[in-house]
Simulated scan of single mutants.
Amino acid sequence: MDQMTPSAEDDLDLEVFDPYTQAVLLKGGLLTTKHIFQYTEAELQKKFNLTAAATRRVFIEASKISTSNVNSGRYKEPHNQVLTTGCDHIDKALGGGLFKYGITEISGESGCGKTQFCLQIALTVQLPLSFKGAKSGAVYICTEDRFPSSRIQQMISNLRFKYQCDNRIDMSELCQTNYGDNILISHIATVEDLKKCIHEMLPKALLHRSIKLIVIDSITAVFRGEYTLSEAPRRSRDLRDLAFCLHNLSVKHGLWIICVNQVTSSMSDITGKKLVPSLGLSWANLVTTRLLMSKTPCSRYIEVIFSPHSGPTSVPFVVTEQGIESLN
């Protein structure tokens, strides 16, 4: 199991918390960033009976330590804890890149670049460690459209132009990797098939293949159409069950998990123009990092809505033959 070994640099400073929170953290053995990031904020708050404000403070302090360790290069391990998105400015907005453990959601309206982002991550996870990759494969679960094979091949053919370094060994490894063969593709049409894939097929694949990324594109497609209004509680339970399984796989195997979500009109906006991620609060509480993509006639944007590793920010980008690139 690929997990970082806790060290003094990972320890929480208990003195910054109130006495009750200190006691909870001590009793629960929640003394390092690794222990904290096993949970979503909602899970931590409920399981250890913390207030929302106290839980948020714990995650903020843990993220400060985690980000500091990444930026200072303290993590020395066989696999990186932070995965590059393939764009330096987006990495910076995320506090260094995509962090292991938990669920990263990418939402946005149709055609704004969500699948392009996921395809790029399916390639960066295969990059050598020196490129902030993980030298591992990916599982790509499609629930809406067929996997865009021609587009991924176009991006693969441009990798040697997108990533450059002076180390001949690293460049040789980058060019010789068989990127297409390292992406396991599954097409899913129903909630039951998705459950079976996550609960049965994925654990088996993880035991026999070097996989560090799971992409579900999208989580919305199967959950939006199979439930009536009266079945909303069952939908919430199924979403929660699926998310908990993904969280557990993430922690056990050291994975990055990306779930694509669609958007819907905000009920609080009478104009109907404000778009918010679908699936409601029951899903939002299970997400670790939420990213929102949008587009205008002139540009596209990726916005950090919330994350334990960085504050809200926005990065303009374009989609090229090589993939996603920032305009900064």
Rank of each mutant, 00 (worst) to 15 (best):
T271R: 01
T271W: 08
Y20Q: 03
R57P: 00
I65R: 11
L202E: 08
L129H: 03
K100P: 02
C259N: 09
L14R: 09
P128R: 00
T67Q: 12
F117H: 04
S72C: 07
D238H: 03
G108L: 04
S157Q: 11
F147L: 07
R146G: 08
P128D: 06
Q176C: 11
R151D: 12
D193S: 12
L50M: 15
G254L: 04
Q120T: 09
I106T: 04
I257W: 12
Y163P: 02
Y179P: 03
A134H: 09
D91T: 11
C142A: 12
K114I: 05
Q120L: 08
Q176A: 13
S282P: 03
C165E: 07
T40W: 14
Q116V: 10
R151Y: 09
L174D: 12
V263H: 11
K34L: 13
I211A: 04
A221Q: 11
A8Q: 08
I152C: 01
F59A: 06
T21G: 02
A232C: 02
L44G: 00
T84Y: 05
A205T: 10
N248L: 02
Q120P: 06
V276D: 05
T228R: 09
C118D: 07
F161K: 14
H199N: 11
S136A: 15
E200P: 03
K295H: 01
I211F: 10
D181H: 08
S307G: 11
V24K: 09
I65S: 03
D181Q: 14
T67R: 14
D238P: 02
V260D: 11
C87K: 06
T296V: 12
N49H: 14
E321K: 11
S130I: 05
S66N: 10
A284I: 08
S110V: 15
S218L: 01
V251H: 14
S314E: 12
V125S: 00
C87E: 15
N80E: 05
L184R: 04
T5F: 00
S110D: 06
I141L: 01
C118H: 01
A23Q: 14
T21I: 00
F17Y: 04
S7G: 13
G29L: 08
K204N: 12
P312H: 13
I141H: 01
T33H: 01
L202V: 15
L292D: 10
S250G: 13
D145I: 03
P233C: 05
T271K: 06
I188V: 15
G280S: 10
V251G: 07
G29C: 07
D88G: 01
G111Q: 08
S250P: 05
M1Y: 05
V315P: 01
K252D: 12
M201T: 15
L174R: 10
D193R: 11
L229E: 14
T115P: 01
P203S: 00
R234Q: 14
V276H: 03
S310W: 06
F161Y: 15
F147Q: 06
Q176T: 15
W256A: 06
G97D: 02
A232S: 07
I188D: 12
L14Q: 05
N80T: 02
L31K: 02
D88P: 07
I270V: 12
N80K: 07
Q153W: 00
F244P: 01
R234I: 08
G86N: 07
Q153T: 11
Q154D: 06
